[in-house]
Amino acid sequence: MNNKLRRSMLYIPANNPAMIQDAFIYGADTILFDLEDSIAISEKDAARELLIEALNSLNFNNTEIAVRINSLDSKFGLKDLKSIVPIGPDIIRIPKIETKEQIIKIDKLITKLERKANLQPGFIEIMAMIETAKGVLNLEKIVASSERLSALTLGAEDLTTDMGIKRTSLGRELFLTRSKIALVAAAYKINAIDTVFSDFNDLNGLKKETLQSKELGFTGKAVIHPRQVDIVNHVFTPSQEEIEDAKEIVRQASQAEEFGKGVIAVKGKMVDLPILNRAKEIINKYEKREVIK
């Protein structure tokens, strides 16, 4: 289990060469190449071939690479998995997960494919897309079923369709699901990635929805347009003040430890272990990088 910095995941249709080669320049934490819904049935093979070539030959500046494959219930899913695993993407996003059995099966399959490709077994992480009511009910069992599973994500369109309801701008219909995904992800220390905001011209709407996601406990959000990356990254990044506070907490805590003091207070607030751990995590993830490549 891990909990990486995955604030923004930028969807890139795997059949568009220009978009693929420039995918990393927008600052998304993860590039999410899509073989599923953005690719027409007639383009599935071409997109897969193109993506294999691209991942084998292009340099994405160390950006995390995810691939969304087709559902294993479709005739493309298995083929996708077999072709994509040997290239060794960081994470594979698997749609329509509703039982732990599916995850166990996929985990075994990936392990087999990893061995065949001389990859360290367990190298590739998986991200489960929850898109059905049944999937929501089985969330905890799903997450507990594989060490590879490092992120949960919501497929809102399919879920509302499954439930026979409509998506609204308020999003009340997804409240329980979102909360549950965030809760389970937090319990297992994995990422919770929220669904996309489709109107890429409405940047205010995106910001509002992203703030709500963050409040509920999501750690990131999928985006469908480069313009959305900055806003999502911004929302999921602590402010400079929060980072400074975190540093202060860690500094005082280590001093306290040195002098054998127990509980400390910073800025008039008690700092206990969870707060200290949170502060360390913030510094770990967000402190300024000063690296020249």
Partner: peptide, 22 residues
């Protein structure tokens, strides 16, 4: 510029190499 982590600083030769590779 090093103080702004949003700036992706590289040496010009490195950018050149990346582009030529592409």
């Amino acid at each position: 510029l090093k103080t702004n982590s949003k700036i992706n600083l590289k040496k010009i030769n490195r950018i050149y190499d990346e582009v030529i590779e592409l």
